Amino acid sequence: NKFNKEMRNAYWEILHLPNLNEEQKNAFIQSLYDDPSQSANLLAEAKKLNDAQA
C-alpha cells in the first residue's frame, strides 16, 4: 500500500529532523496517523519548520 510506505518514510524522516523538539515531532507524527494521505505534505511542512529553526 502506497500510503503505508509514504507514511513510514515520512515518519522516519520527521523523527530524525535535528531542529524539531519532541512536541513538534509528536504533532507531525500524530497528523501522519490521522491522515496518511497527507504524508508528503506533512513531511514538507516538517522540513520547512526544521529549516526555519536551524
Rank of each mutant, 00 (worst) to 15 (best):
N41T: 10
P36S: 05
L20K: 00
H16D: 05
Y33A: 02
E45D: 10
Q30V: 10
H16M: 07
D51P: 03
A40E: 03
E13V: 09
A27R: 10
Y11E: 07
A10K: 02
F3W: 01
R8P: 02
W12L: 03
Q53T: 11
Y11T: 03
N21I: 12
E45M: 15
A44F: 14
D35P: 01
L20I: 13
W12E: 08
I29R: 06
E23W: 13
L49F: 12
A52H: 13
Q30G: 08
L15Y: 12
F28E: 00
H16I: 05
K47Y: 05
L15H: 06
K2R: 09
E45K: 14
Y11M: 15
L15A: 05
L15P: 00
S39I: 07
E45T: 13
H16P: 01
N26L: 14
Q53M: 12
S31Y: 07
N19V: 06
A52V: 08
D34Q: 13
A44H: 13
Q30A: 15
L32D: 00
N9H: 14
I29A: 09
L42T: 00
Q30H: 15
N26M: 14
N41R: 05
I29V: 12
N21G: 13
L20H: 00
L15E: 04
K48G: 12
N1S: 03
Q38W: 10
Y33P: 05
K25H: 03
K47N: 08
N21D: 13
N1I: 03
K2F: 13
D34H: 14
K47S: 04
L20V: 08
L32I: 05
K47Q: 07
A54F: 08
D35I: 07
Y11A: 07
K25L: 09
E13M: 06
E13A: 15
N1G: 02
K2N: 10
A27H: 11
L32G: 01
W12R: 11
S37H: 09
L49A: 10
S31T: 11
L17D: 00
N41D: 10
N9P: 02
L42V: 11
F28K: 03
K2Q: 14
M7S: 04
Q38E: 14
K48A: 07
F28W: 06
A40G: 11
R8V: 10
K25Y: 04
L43R: 11
E6K: 02
A54S: 12
L20A: 01
Y11L: 13
L32V: 06
L15Q: 09
L42K: 12
K2L: 10
N19T: 02
H16F: 09
I14V: 04
M7G: 01
Q24R: 05
R8H: 10
D35V: 05
A27M: 15
I14T: 01
W12M: 05
E6I: 02
E6H: 03
A40L: 13
L42W: 14
L20T: 00
E23F: 14
N21K: 09
Y11G: 03
N1V: 06
P36Y: 03
P36H: 04
K2Y: 04
N1F: 02
K48H: 14
N50E: 04
E13S: 12
K5F: 01
A44N: 10
S37K: 03
S37M: 05
Q30E: 05
Q53P: 06
A27Q: 02
E6A: 04
E6P: 03
K47L: 04
L20E: 00
K2S: 14
I14W: 00
Y33I: 06
R8Q: 13
S37G: 05
I14Q: 00
E22R: 15
N41F: 10
N19P: 00
Y11K: 07
I29Q: 08
Q53G: 14
A46W: 01
D51F: 14
P36L: 03
P18R: 11
F28A: 05
E13K: 15
P36Q: 07
I14M: 09
E45Y: 09
N4T: 04
N26H: 08
S39Q: 02
A44G: 06
A27E: 12
L49E: 13
N21Y: 14
L49Q: 15
S31A: 03
A40K: 13
N19L: 04
A40D: 03
S31R: 11
A10E: 01
P18E: 03
A46T: 02
W12H: 11
A46S: 09
D35L: 09
Q53K: 03
A44R: 09
R8N: 12
